[in-house]
Design a binder for these strands. Sequence first.
DNA 1: CCAAAGATACCGGATGAATGGTATCTTTCG
DNA 2: CGAAAGATACCATTCATCCGGTATCTTTGG
Lengths: 195, 195
Amino acid sequence: MENRYTRRKQPELVRRSLLEHAARLAVEQGLTAVTVQAVSDAAGVTKGGLAHHFPTKQALIDAVFHEILDALDRELDERIKADPDLYGAFTRAYLESVFDIGPEAKGGPWATLSVSMLTDPSLRALWAQWFLARIQRHSATDDDVKLVAVRLAADGVWLADLSSIPILKRAELRSYLIRETRTNTEQTKPQSAST
Amino acid sequence: MENRYTRRKQPELVRRSLLEHAARLAVEQGLTAVTVQAVSDAAGVTKGGLAHHFPTKQALIDAVFHEILDALDRELDERIKADPDLYGAFTRAYLESVFDIGPEAKGGPWATLSVSMLTDPSLRALWAQWFLARIQRHSATDDDVKLVAVRLAADGVWLADLSSIPILKRAELRSYLIRETRTNTEQTKPQSAST
DNA sequence: CCAAAGATACCGGATGAATGGTATCTTTCG
DNA sequence: CGAAAGATACCATTCATCCGGTATCTTTGG
């Protein structure tokens, strides 16, 4: 009658471990590989243990998704804060956070996002909601068509990275896109926020 | 003892119906919802009927994927052929085929592509292969960084459409992006095709 | 201070619903 | 008739969830 319950209880650690391993599995082996058994095993607990933290599988996935959105929010805010220029700051932050992760960083938030997002319509809606809120928040500085185009291109990059499609001239593309965020399309006013 | 074999046999129609409903289900309810049972029911046949056309589920999915890639190929070739301008013709075709489908056409090729692509690594590879081949084929006319950016933005557009994220100034964005495909980045020549 | 009592964290097998696949039967069409 | 088209029944497996049990932590009463 060995004692199997020698584990030191650290609910927070276990919870985080579950979330992380769930995300990792999703990215590395697809969402179908994210079974409660696999996640539990990876995190070093049993299915019952997982069930205690997340009553249902969907709850676990939702938690992962929210966690990622929060992290993304923080990262974007940081970059925006560090940007001396106001005009297009959000777009640049968005762009850079995509580019800097790169195609090899499979564990990054973007990869996880996409995989779970495009598969599950409910998560798609959540993503749309997050995105719209964010856009609206920066409507004053990031509303130009040119900037919209840049952000969409960023999405394209992220998609290409995920699909393992090599982007030729990646560095050149990056600097080109960033340059696009500096120049204003509207010819009526010369430059709105250049100082 | 009703006769359940009242269906008029039209194998081609049934086959197409199966493919279409499989694609629709994938987009609307995620790939997990595309089970042989669900697809069969939606198409008005039984699992056995499906099994006759597609021996395995993977065969069905592959067929959907290939069907879409072929249709896409045809559409792109048509648009390119109709374009009087050579430079950036592929990029314009790509762009227009994304824009013209619109956000409401959920059954469109792009949406289906993405959903199935990102979940299944083998399909991802297939897509990458198709895309690279296509790019290489147009390397002479569509290699500029500016054009790469436009194509990536197009990818962003269909991603947004899929996520039901409204794109403000859609028409303006479209004409802006198309305009971008006309002007050459290389400053050595002044303007290649401005009429 | 400390031990009982309850709450929280975790275990692990049982269960039942889906699912993909297969084998066999019936009907329709050429 | 014979082969194609489709229906029905059945199997093996996987998976999420449930649930009774056990260990550790926290509170509380003395």
